[in-house]
């Protein structure tokens, strides 16, 4: 019970990183998609701003995943 090298380590590490990565991607999509949707409503752009927001959100999410989880 005292050893620090548990064979489960990798799987648990993998799971937590997967959840963090997924969280960033979905958060990015939702947040900037929502901002884009608000802009759509405001300027009546017909969905273009929402699409841009979602893409930008995903891009930022990928950036954060690399930044936070990358070596």
């Amino acid at each position: 019970m005292t050893d620090d090298q548990s064979p489960r380590r990798d799987s648990a590490r993998g799971a937590d990183q997967a959840y963090t990565a997924l969280g960033y991607l979905i958060s990015g999509m939702l947040i900037w998609g929502f901002v884009g949707w608000l802009v759509d409503r405001w300027l009546d752009l017909g969905g273009i701003a929402t699409a841009i927001g979602v893409v930008m959100g995903v891009a930022l999410g990928v950036y954060l995943v690399v930044k936070r989880l990358g070596a």
């Binding site: 969280g23 960033y24 979905i26 958060s27 990015g28 939702l30 947040i31 900037w32 930008m56 959100g57 930022l60 999410g61 950036y63 954060l64």
Partner: peptide
């Protein structure tokens, strides 16, 4: 220049979506 875009995302993912 990226911070205004990143901070809302970090805030939402950490303090809202979690």
């Amino acid at each position: 220049w990226l911070l205004p875009l990143v901070i809302p995302l970090e805030f939402a993912s950490t303090f809202l979506f979690r």
